[in-house]
Amino acid sequence: MKTANQNLSTLKVERSQRYFNKLSLFFYDFILYGVISKYAWGSSIQRLDAHYKKYVSSNHLEVGVGTGFLLNRVVFDTAKPRLALMDLSRECLAKTKFKVSRYAPETYIQNLLEPVQHKIAKFDSIAINYVMHCVPGSFKEKGIAFSHLQPLLTDNSVLFGTSVLSEDVHKNLFAKPFMWLMNYLGVFNNRNDNARDLKDFLEKNFQVLDFEVVGVTAFFAVKNK
Rank of each mutant, 00 (worst) to 15 (best):
M1E: 08
Q6V: 13
Q6R: 13
V13I: 15
L23Y: 13
F26A: 10
F26N: 06
F27L: 12
Y28F: 02
D29I: 06
F30E: 09
F30C: 07
I31S: 10
V35T: 08
S37Q: 12
K38S: 13
W41C: 01
W41R: 05
S43G: 07
H51D: 15
K54L: 12
S57L: 06
S58T: 08
L61A: 03
E62C: 08
G64D: 00
F69M: 06
L70I: 13
L70G: 03
R73C: 11
R73D: 07
V74C: 04
V74Y: 02
V75P: 08
T78K: 08
A79M: 09
A79W: 04
K80E: 15
P81E: 03
A84C: 10
L85T: 00
M86E: 05
L88K: 09
K95P: 03
K97Q: 15
F98N: 14
V100F: 00
Y103H: 02
E106P: 01
T107H: 00
E114R: 11
Q117C: 08
I126F: 04
I126C: 02
I128L: 09
I128P: 01
G137Y: 03
S138P: 13
F139D: 00
S147F: 12
L152N: 05
L152G: 06
L153M: 05
F160E: 03
S163D: 10
S163M: 07
V164F: 02
L165E: 03
L165K: 00
K171T: 00
L173P: 13
F174Q: 07
K176S: 06
P177M: 10
M179L: 13
L181F: 14
N183L: 02
G186S: 07
N189C: 07
N192W: 06
D193M: 01
R196V: 14
E203Y: 07
Q207A: 10
V208Y: 02
L209A: 09
E212N: 03
E212L: 09
V214H: 11
V214W: 11
A218I: 03
N224E: 09
